[in-house]
Design a protein around this nucleic acid. Structure first.
Length: 800
DNA sequence: CCACCCTGTCATTGA
DNA sequence: ACTCAATGACAGGGT
């Protein structure tokens, strides 16, 4: 059964991957969204520390303790979770697609999709609390890729939902006709924007809009209303100039907004986007882009020639008119680097989407890690022809490629080359293989450690990614270990994973450890035996533990016992958890005793013979010996509680169970029916009091224990989440580092290939590259921003 | 013998 | 006033 499940799961995963590799869109979220609520919680369960869908909590949901640790339901539960987890891992691949949709946006300046609306969510993966939103946003972003009309500038909404909610409501109308905006609406939007700025959300947008505002003043013909123009420009070209805003001051409030994580999502995506834009501008591939490494004629093409070609495709250009935004591109470039350093934690891998891989022969040995420029999710048809040598214009990262894979539209637009080829070729080169493996792992490892078990425990199916995953996982794990704090080691994590995810590693006491839910055979059998047999000795693992069915059966046997038995069962179940839950808690680990409170107060010997199955094996053995060797009466006396003995001694005509569990009225009636002396009455009342107090004490202790266990679970969840976040961070760091290296190498190479009028190379110390909508500009370093803004600036289009 | 734990019991408190 | 649940504290017994 389990095998079949795993087989199916693996097969499903691989099939899905294959589908996506061929370009078939696999939009898992679109399916899952139908099943929402919280898919994330369902899948990750305990990993969501805030919701604590935990082991016992789950049990509690079903009438207190509906699911026994050995129940098949648990097995099903874990299997389902694992399945969903794996499927979710596929879904995880889709995260990059978010970014892709953003790129598409810029094709049409009029219906531009805010890049941050997608990038925000994807970045927000680090935020455990917003995972669900992330998923939703991803799905919407995915759909948004197909239709730009769906796009929203929800960046603000991500960061400060409350403040931006009104915007969202207006959004549709605004997009359709910004002229319909009333002045009040615009003012409101402005206010909300400022609020977002103050909240640190998407200030780049506003900085840009501010710039835009300023520029609009110069060009009033762009928009009738200034605010409307701002909004439009904000919507259209927002974030493209984000980098510049890093070092800027809030234009509205004059505040200097520090770099904060609040807007990291937007910033990161922006920075990356900007970076990509720069790269694209640096090496603007055309449709027939030829990778001529030998091209050394350093003619700088006039920017005007380039504009038309770039505008027809998916371009990274700012929608702003060139004259409008004389940006300090050098500053942008520097800002990019600084941003990448500052935000190395939050980089969205997918921002660097590389899709050009058709010329692996162009791998340049001198720049092995050169950025695969021109391939950032751009269809080839839209690329600008450039003579700049393109080194290894292949997708270095599978993860970066997946967005393209999952986006049929992009594939179709750029579809000269099958995506499959890209992947394969990307894996062909050493660099790319490692790089791709890493990122692939990052994508394929949905939640942190789950994949570990999935991959390692399924040797049956050859996973095409197994090698990559394992290799990368070793890397990740080692890094993770280094990054681990508070002694949360990978081993613990894996153990945690084992315990929480599916294969519970209850190993304290084999006789008491519940069979692992994934171990279907054992768990099912034990569960079946324990649940089907009522109040009988079960196997070792089930000794002393009574299910509800047992309780029910016992209830039918002796009415008075009924009230008591469920408590016992619960407590036994609680004790059941002990072994597992205390595993890992040193101070509690020794608490491996039997907490079965089902030592019966039963008065009938037959009942006791069944129900008094002591929790410990020893106790049971002793008991068995006693039952064999001793007369029933002696045994009864020995096993009876003091109150029972007293009751017998006082000739109490009814059982202690009745005394204890009967309702007050019936109890009084019972007392009234029998003529009892004072001593008897006092004893009966004491028995009742003690009995009830005993149960109360048991309940109290159980609650205490549950509280402790819940806390432990919460700690584990948080630790797991922390590990996941650390892992993601490391992945992002790696991606950033690689991107930075590639950008730098590209820049160096570009310098090396540029020639001035005299045929001499430009000195990198004297000149710098600036990247604008028109292409790459070679600027003297001493040139100021204002000078660079001048139309007659030294601007040469790079042409090779 | 000691330490630790489990369990029952008592006393108290609050509902 | 009574009942009951909850809980801290304590003691006895087991390991």
């Amino acid at each position: 059964m389990l095998y079949l499940k795993k087989y199916f799961t693996e097969g499903l995963i691989q099939f899905t991957i294959l589908l996506s590799l061929i370009g078939v869109r696999v939009d898992l979220d679109s399916y899952f969204n139908n099943q929402l609520p919280p898919l994330r919680e369902i899948i990750l369960g305990p990993s969501s520390a805030y919701t604590q869908t935990q082991f016992h909590n789950l049990r509690n949901t079903l009438d207190g303790y509906g699911i026994h640790p050995k129940s098949v339901d648990l097995d099903h539960f874990f299997a389902t979770r694992r399945l969903l987890n794996q499927v979710r891992s596929l879904d995880h691949l889709r995260v990059p697609s978010t970014e892709l949709s953003a790129w598409l946006v810029h094709r049409d300046p009029e219906t531009v999709v805010s890049a941050t609306s997608q990038s925000g969510p994807s970045i927000a993966l680090d935020n455990g609390g917003s995972l669900e939103d992330v998923n939703n946003s991803e799905a919407s972003a995915m759909r948004g890729a197909g239709s730009a009309s769906e796009t929203t500038y929800s960046l603000s909404g991500e960061d400060s939902q409350g403040a931006v909610a009104p915007e969202d409501s207006q959004e549709q109308g605004e997009r359709e006709s910004s002229d319909d905006l009333s002045k009040e609406d615009i003012d409101l939007i402005d206010i909300l924007w400022r609020q977002d700025i103050d909240l640190g959300a998407g200030r780049e947008v506003f900085n840009y809009s501010n710039r835009q505002k300023e520029s609009e003043a110069d060009k009033p013909n762009e928009e009738n209303e200034e605010a409307g123009g701002r909004e439009e420009s904000w919507r259209n070209g927002l974030n493209l100039q984000a980098v510049q805003s890093q070092a800027q001051v809030d234009g509205e409030t004059g505040e200097s907004i520090p770099e904060e994580l609040t807007s990291l999502g937007a910033q990161t995506s922006l920075s990356l986007q900007e970076c990509l834009r720069l790269l694209e501008a640096t090496f603007p591939f055309g449709e027939e882009s030829e990778f001529q490494a030998t091209g050394s004629t350093s003619q700088l093409r006039p920017s005007t020639e380039e504009a038309p070609s770039t505008s027809q495709g998916i371009t990274l250009q700012s929608p702003l008119p060139q004259s409008d935004t004389p940006l300090d591109l050098e500053q942008q470039w520097q800002d990019i680097m600084s941003i990448m350093e500052l935000q190395d934690m939050e980089v969205n891998n997918t921002a660097v989407n590389v899709s050009m891989n058709n010329d692996p022969n162009n791998n340049n040995a001198s720049t092995p890690e050169s950025v695969p420029i021109g391939s950032f999710g751009l269809p080839r048809s839209t690329l600008i022809n450039q003579d700049v040598s393109l080194h290894q214009a292949s997708l270095p990262s599978c993860s970066q490629d997946f967005p393209t894979l999952f986006n049929p539209e992009l594939d179709s637009t750029g579809g000269q080359q099958p995506t499959l080829v890209r992947v394969s070729s990307s894996n062909s080169s050493n660099i790319n293989s490692t790089f791709g493996a890493t990122n692939l792992t990052g994508l394929f490892l949905p939640p942190p450690l789950n994949s570990t078990t999935n991959l390692t425990t399924t040797p049956v199916l050859p996973d095409p990614f197994s090698s990559l995953l394992e290799e990368s996982m070793l890397d990740e794990i080692s890094l993770l270990d280094l990054a681990m704090e508070e002694g949360f080691s990978q081993a613990q994590a894996s153990q945690l994973e084992d315990e929480l995810d599916s294969d519970s590693g209850l190993s304290l006491d084999s006789s008491h450890s519940p069979a692992s839910p994934s171990n279907s055979e054992t768990s099912c059998s034990s569960a079946a035996s324990s649940s089907s047999t009522s109040a009988t000795f079960s196997e070792e693992g089930a000794v002393g533990y009574s299910t509800d069915s047992e309780a029910a059966a016992a209830e039918t046997e002796e009415g008075a016992v009924g009230g008591y038995q469920p408590e016992y069962s619960k407590l036994c179940r609680m004790s059941y958890q002990d072994a597992s839950k205390f595993h890992g808690i040193p101070q509690l680990e020794s608490v491996n005793h039997n907490h079965t409170y089902n030592l019966p107060l039963a008065s009938s010997y037959s009942e006791r013979s069944q129900l008094s199955a002591s929790c410990s094996k020893k106790g049971r053995d002793k008991q068995m010996q006693q039952t064999k060797l001793q007369p029933p009466q002696d045994y009864a006396d020995r096993q009876s509680s003091r109150d029972e003995r007293r009751a017998r001694a006082m000739d109490i005509p009814f059982s202690n169970e009745k005394i204890i569990n009967l309702p007050v009225e019936e109890f009084n009636e019972l007392l009234a029916k029998h003529h009892l002396n004072e001593d008897q009455l006092a004893l009966i009342r004491d028995i009742r009091r003690r009995g009830k107090n005993k149960m109360a004490a048991q309940n109290c202790r159980k609650r205490k224990l549950d509280t402790i266990l819940n806390l432990e679970q919460g700690v584990q969840d948080l630790q797991r989440e922390k590990a996941q976040l650390l892992k993601e961070k490391m992945e992002y760091d790696k991606c950033i580092r690689q991107t930075k290296q590639k950008v730098q190498s590209l820049s160096r190479e570009l310098f090396a290939q540029l020639r001035n009028e005299e045929g001499r190379p430009y000195s990198a110390s004297e000149y710098c590259l600036q990247y604008g909508p028109d292409g790459v500009l070679l600027m003297p370093r001493n040139m100021t921003t204002e000078q660079s803004n001048k139309p007659d600036k030294k601007q040469k289009d790079k042409k090779k």
